[in-house]
Every structure is written in C-alpha cells, then in structure tokens.
Design a protein around this nucleic acid. Structure first.
Lengths: 335, 335
DNA sequence: TTGTAGGCGTTATCAG
DNA sequence: CTGATAACGCCTACAA
C-alpha cells in the first residue's frame, strides 16, 4: 500500500515517466490522447507527486517563504489568499513565518531554516531589506515586498496616500470642522510601517487643496480600548466647543471608526448627521455598521506580488517593478 | 558559488560521503578524530544538508508542522521557543501554520501542502483530531497535542484545573465575597478550547472545599475594551452592595486583571486592600503591575511535547502519553 | 571503523 | 511528440 510513484503511473498509462512528468508540468508538447490517458491513470491511482523529489531533481525547492506580522486582522488573511492562489497555480508551496518577535526573525534568517531553503521570499508590510544586508544572506534570494514600498526591489503596495486623499476629498464635501484620529506607529524601528503616515499625508493634502484646515488630531494605539478612550476624548472636546457639531471625523482604520460609533451611540450622536465618520479598511463588519470607508484590493495585491516573484524565479532579470494598488471609497451611511 | 553538498564535505575532510552522513546522523560508529575532521569541514564550508534530499533518500522529511492559533499572545511565542528548541536539537525543521481561519486549516490538510509532507504534526490548544478523521488523512502522521488534552493521543498540557484550584485556595485565605471574571469561549465548535472551563472548575472546587461560595460571575471576551467594561460592571455592583468591599476577584487571564486594575484606579480602589485581584498567565507586564497570578511553564511544555513526538518518530509504538504541567502561584501586591 | 555503490521519486536532456 | 537515461543530494546496506 505504498504511495504510488510516477513510475506506477507511467506503467498504468502505458507511457514513459518523461511523459507523465510533462503532463504534470503542463508541458505543451504532449498529444491530447496521451495526456488524457496519463490523467486517468493519475486519478485512478490517486497519485500525488512527491514534492521533495521534484525539489531535488529540479534544483528548486518550490517553496516560498512569506514573512508577515501577526496582527490578527482580516487584512493578512486576504493577503495570504491572494498570494497562495498565485503560488498554487504555479505549484509552489508557501511556508509562513509569523514575525512574533525580533529574535525569532533573526532565527528565521539563520541558515538552517526553511526560509533559507526557499526559492523566494515575500515580505509583508515591513521592509526588512536592511536587516538582510546586516546578516549578509549569502544566497540573495529573489524577494518581493507586499504592502510596502522600497526602491530597487519588486513590490506591490497599497497607495495609502491616495486612500487618504480620497478620504479627504470626501470629507471636504461637507461644511463644519474636520478632525482625524491616527494610529500610533510601532516603536521598534525595525518593525516600522509607513502605512499610517501615508494615509495622513494624503488626507492632509486633500484638505489643503480644498483650502480647508484640520481641526483636532488624536492618536490612538491599535486597540479597542484605546480607540474607545480616544473617541471619548475627541467627542468631549467636540461637544463642548461652539459649532463643534456637525463635524467630520476621519478615523484612519475601521477599528477606530467602530469605536467612535460606539461612543457616539452612548452620547446620542447620529452618524452621518451629527458626526460624519470615515473609516479605512472596509472590514467585514463595516458594511453592517454602515461605515463609509476605503476598500483595499488586498487579494489582488497579494496575487500580483506573487506574480512578480514568479517572473523572477522564471528568469526575469530586469529592473525592479513597483505595482501600485488603489483603495476605493465606499460610501455608506456614516458619511 | 553553489551550495556545498555532502560530496564537497567528504572531499574536504578526506573521507567518504558515508562517513559524513554518519556524523550528520550521530551514528556511533565513527572515530573521534574522523568525526572532528568532518565537523570542521562542515563548518568551514558552512554546509547544511539539503532536507529534500534527506527526505527522499531516508524516507523522512525532517520537517514538523506546527498548527497554532494566531492569538498574538506571549504564550505562543514561548510555546514555540520550547518546541523549536527541542526540534532543532534533533535537526528537525519546523513549519508554522497559523490557523487564520477555517478554510485555511482545510487547505493545510490538503494533500499537496508541506503540512501533509511533514513527518509529524504538533497541534496547539485546539484538538483538531476530529477534523482529521473527516478528511481521512491517508498517511496518519504521528501527532502530539500541546496545551490541549485528548485521549489516545500524545499530549503535553497545562493543568488549568490545578491552576484554577491554586487561585481558589489563595482566594479563600481572605474573608469577604469572592467574584470571578471568565473568558468567553470561541463560538466555532472546531476552534474550541477547554482552557477556561478548566480554570473555572478548579477554582470552583477550591471554593467548595473551603465551604465558600462564589459571588458574582461575569464573562468577557478576550479584548481590552470588553474587559474594561466588564470590570466596570462588576465594580459597580460590588461598590453599591453592602459589605461589597473588601472582596476578592479572580480574573482568569492577566488581560482581564489588568483591565480590572485600571478601572479600580479610576475609582480609587486599592489593589490588595479594597479589591484583591488574582490573575492568570504571568504576562511579562504582570510583575510591574504587581499582579498576583499563575505562572505557566510554557517553554517546558513545548519542549516536552516536541520530545514526545520525537520518540514516536524514532519508533516508539506504545500507548499515548500525557504530560501534565502545573501552573504555580506567584504572589504579588494585588492579592 | 570506513569507503563504495545502489536507490529514493522527480526533472531535464537527449536521441529517435 | 515520446521514451530512455543521467542527474539531483542524501542514506544505507554491503564489503573491505
């Protein structure tokens, strides 16, 4: 009852192993009839190729390492969906390395791990290139950045500046003061991301272009409690100042927007009327709560990132490419 | 500049490949001098064996799949530290599969993935055995549960009943009412864990043994905001009822205890005097906040789980073994 | 105790 | 288009 091999399939289909290998790899030079016979043998035998054997025979590992932060957001689930879809089509395996902490990252970069054995590397959100040079990775693996941008590296990134701008352009459509809540950025330099800076600069730009100024700015860490407290502080200020309501608040992440809506409900403030709320991310629950927000084509970004890496693996040697993805505004009741 | 192979090492050390292979696998029949020479060649060349080649030649992949939830808690970082330490010693690679969502889990179990090819499986916290049967995994891989218990499977688990009991025994040392805050368990049956149930039953047992009853019970989801709200509710009730203070509160996770302390501070209630607080987990920040809590030997549990799996891989065929680990009470100012 | 040779399941390179 | 056959890097007898 041992696992069937390519040999077994070849015998059963009455062809040579080479032919079986060809149909396995979608090689064009196979006659239709032959291909069908092989395919039938494969399914009859419930044959699955041994990945280790192809790794050793082909000189490639057919494995991609994906390094990503472990924020338990839907964002990374969707990102992985996009990445995995593309890699699976190309028969690559993906190994996920959650960056739980800094020392773990360094271990991943040690030469004994799977990360080292992989054919390519996907780095999400954080640009760890610098660190890679410190550790002078011997085999410079093809690398692609996703949800991050850097020069001289292939990357697929979300244009958060544009996202911020769209939010700003929507904000200025209404009169009244405009406020914003930003997300506190990580302290560790290594784990820094420019996402929220970008959203801010896009937003500010739109306001400036419309000749509008920003009222209050608050900063909150990415945490429900902190978000709620920040929302309360902002509303306290807004409610006590003359002409404070109606106003518009750009909450630069849906988590913040949700907390703001909660706090507004307590105070009897009506979304879209007393306080117009614009979020960011289009989280799954954003629709139900009627949050006007920015949707990000995350899966597409992941898919494209994977595609960029695959072209490198297939021999592309040209200059680094950058693929930009634009968030789109989804208008709902909150603004 | 290509990766050195076992051949290169053999040449450099002036021995045959067989000898190199033997020292690689800790085979006893190698002379000390020879071994040293080989070892030197290995480190000179910075040679690392190709795991895929090992797999295909030896029939093992030397890879372990670790399935774990992605709660970004220190708990899983420590657990992985323990697991990886043991596996590294045995020259096994570990591939981490974060269980971001249900469909992803099913994909991991698909026959093409690394998880399927691994020599063994570690499942953390959740017992997914049932699912495995549904999917009738053909190659029943050796599996070990960690931070979870089930019959007929090797497992290393934290005795949360004892942890709860220790908390209870500490709680009953003081007079006054005793309250508790529990963590809401996951809705999806598949992703269920008994951890919090166990803490509860241990705690209740200790109270019963001491002839004491439980006052108020609250449930909170594992989220800072929810925890804070729950704490507020509890304190509202406690402060308004006669003889409500001083009292003792068992917060079954440090996250809950921290939120409780925050809310107490707002109300001017003194920890350890007005309200005695007992947490659970001994998070890194628990010491600074003076939280009396239960420390869990998480690394040891991980290490032991890995060891159990390794014995299976080395041919152990006996009955399932269960290794129990006991939390220990750390008394600080809060109780 | 050590070296040599055969084989593991694929892919890739040839002739045909 | 297809079938042999030589790699790929390692492990494991078997022989020395």
């Amino acid at each position: 009852m041992r696992k069937p091999t390519i040999q077994d399939v070849a015998v059963k289909a009455g062809v040579g192993v080479g032919t079986v290998s060809r149909v396995l790899n979608n090689h064009p030079a196979v006659r239709g009839v032959t291909r069908d016979a092989v395919l039938k043998a494969i399914s009859d035998l419930e044959y699955t190729p041994n990945p280790h054997a192809r790794r050793i025979a082909g000189g490639k590992s057919y494995t991609i390492s994906v390094l990503l932060p472990v924020l338990t957001t839907e964002f990374y689930t969707r990102l992985l969906d996009g990445l995995e879809a593309a890699f699976q089509e190309a028969r690559y395996d993906v190994a996920i390395f959650p960056l739980l902490d800094r020392s773990r990252l360094e271990r991943y970069l040690g030469s004994h791990t799977l990360a080292y054995q992989a054919d390519g590397l996907v780095m999400a959100t954080y640009n760890l290139q610098a660190l890679f040079h410190e550790h002078r990775l011997r085999t410079q693996q093809p690398t692609v950045l996703v949800d991050a941008y850097a020069e001289h590296v292939d990357c697929a990134y979300m244009d958060n500046v544009t996202g911020g701008r769209l939010a700003g352009e929507h904000a200025v459509k209404a009169p009244g003061p405009i406020h914003a809540i930003w997300v506190e950025t990580e302290l560790d330099q290594l784990f820094q991301t420019r996402v929220f800076e970008d959203r801010r600069s896009g937003f500010m730009g739109a306001l400036a272009a419309a000749g509008r100024g920003l009222g209050r700015e608050c900063v909150s860490s990415f945490d429900t409690l902190a978000a709620r407290n920040t929302a309360a502080q902002l509303l306290d200020a807004v409610q006590t100042e003359p002409g404070g309501v109606p106003c518009t608040v750009f909450a630069s992440a849906d988590l913040l927007a949700g907390a703001l809506l909660d706090e507004m409900a307590v105070r009897g403030l009506q979304p879209g009327v007393d306080v117009r709320v614009i979020g960011f991310d289009n989280q799954p629950w954003a629709a139900a709560r009627g949050i006007t927000t920015l949707h990000q084509p995350v899966e597409s970004m992941g898919y494209e990132a994977a595609t960029l890496l695959l072209t490198r693996l297939n021999g592309y040697r040209g200059p680094a490419r950058a693929r930009r993805f634009e968030p789109s505004l989804i208008v709902r009741g909150s603004a």
